[in-house]
Design a protein around this nucleic acid. Structure first.
Lengths: 280, 280
DNA sequence: CGTTCCCTTGACACCGATCAACTCTGGTGG
DNA sequence: CCACCAGAGTTGATCGGTGTCAAGGGAACG
């Protein structure tokens, strides 16, 4: 499906310079207070860290999941294949993202995880995780919160693919990824790493690479983004978010990324003030 | 958006006759052994059972979730609204289905839940649930399994909307719902309750009601289904599943509904024998 | 017995898929 | 060091699946 890796080394280096030591801890703290002890305990899970090459599977579809996978560095994608050979990406996994908790309860994985860049993944033993969660309720709550956010993102993706046209889909994805990258410590207005190929974007959004290309051309022409050499710079986030109908609420970040555009859907729902808040 | 209810009483009655006392227990036992004590304990959660009328919200978008909701009887839908007024349904909730576990960890719900038929819902206090899960590890594991299955279904929906054409989407949805209804005790080849309007089907699949109608006409003409008066009979499940590319694996039911069509995607993945197994 | 959903049907428009080249870039090997 | 090569991006022409708009029919409820 894909294999090439281009400039990923430079890409890697630039990320390491900027990111906080543990992306997982950084991410969780956006949603949940975590004591330093809890944070340290989480770091202990990364004992068994392995490197997965660009384009290789971390876990394949139908394989029995015997570990929980935690992305330490690089980008990965959850995907499912159809019998006609097409692929649907159901999630992009960034540093700090985790595979399904307790996935070992299932006989076989219903999806694969593939490395989109050179990847560092921590393989966590389910027992160790379980033990940590019982001994440290704070960690347990934080990880459960993280799983809820994953699910919320998945719902947002379904909405995106089901109810928006191609242009809005791409824009919404870019908004989401930018918000998630900001949480990881990238500045809001600087170019951020963006290693996705147009084919991968298409596989995530239910579009063909050809059409993704056309949409990107348009977005560049409109001055919304600069996307070049695996770096993405969002020039006008507010306009992008407005056009995409993006609302950061579903990411459930507490104070970090404030909702950019909160739409009032139908009947008034209160929380009117927040609607005027724009992201930075 | 919708409000009418048609024939739901008859519909209700026929379901009660057939279903095991607790749909939740029935469902969980498909994935997990549950002792009788555990099952009884689960029933204890249904103390506070409320009725929600057809078309009303169980919980609205942006509301703070202060209960976990368990569907006792009737159908409901998770949905999100867009600012242009369109709606995307992200899940159909059948008896035994639960709202997100630990959703109370979130400040506000990122989606609403609406009753599609007259509904009986158990409002479970988060504390009571938490307590039950700590005191009964078996229950905890079963509920976590259930959450994983929910997520797997969500991924399957994304694949459906992202990568299949309208006809296959409808067929895939029907296959999934049939499998889930079978778990609830409906016979595989008998008509089963199916209260969805064509608009609701469209909102779940990213289609317009008009087009859903045309697809259904076609499926009827092809002898695949009989859908009439809120009853659905699948005439030729194998053919339906094959045309939809449906594989029941993602439902993670242990022995109940065997995979209908298991597709081999690209490279051989092993488990070759299972590929020939058809459902019933 | 009228009203209200919901379903149905037809004509037409358009977004995005498909097919097929061609370019550009970075990496590889002679 | 240069030539080649593979993968990604780009562009144009054409086609088809779905959306849209509009009108009418049928069943259940009050």
């Amino acid at each position: 499906m894909r294999k090439g890796d281009v400039g990923t080394c430079r890409f890697d280096a630039s990320r390491r310079r900027k990111i906080a030591p543990s992306p997982l801890v950084t991410k969780l703290r956006r949603g949940f207070p975590l004591t330093d002890d809890d944070a340290r305990a989480l770091l202990g899970l990364c004992r068994d860290t392995r490197v997965v090459h660009d384009g290789r599977d971390v876990i394949a579809e139908r394989e029995r999941p015997d570990h929980v996978h935690l992305i330490v560095d690089g980008w990965a994608a959850r995907y499912k294949l159809l019998h006609d050979g097409s692929r649907q990406i159901t999630a992009f996994l960034l540093p700090g993202d985790i595979d399904d908790l307790h996935a070992n309860l299932l006989r076989q994985s219903d999806h694969g995880i593939v490395a989109l860049t050179p990847l560092r993944v921590a393989f966590v033993a389910p027992d160790a995780l379980e033990q940590l969660m019982t001994s440290r309720p704070g960690v347990a709550r934080a990880l459960r919160w993280s799983m809820l956010v994953d699910k919320a993102i998945l719902r947002a993706w379904l909405v995106n693919v089901g109810r928006r046209d191609a242009k809005a889909r791409v824009m919404h994805l870019f908004c989401e990824l930018r918000e998630r990258l900001v949480v990881l410590g990238f500045a809001k207005n600087d170019p951020a790493p963006f290693p996705l190929t147009q084919e991968e974007i298409g596989d995530a959004l239910g579009l063909t690479p050809v059409h993704v290309n056309r949409v990107l051309q348009r977005m560049r022409a409109d001055g919304l983004i600069v996307l070049h050499r695996r770096l993405l710079q969002v020039r006008d986030f507010d306009r992008l978010a407005a056009a995409a109908g993006f609302s950061a609420a579903y990411l459930h970040a507490v104070d970090a990324a404030l909702p950019a555009v909160r739409h009032l859907a139908g009947v008034a729902i209160g929380a009117g003030d927040a609607c005027r808040q724009a992201c930075r």
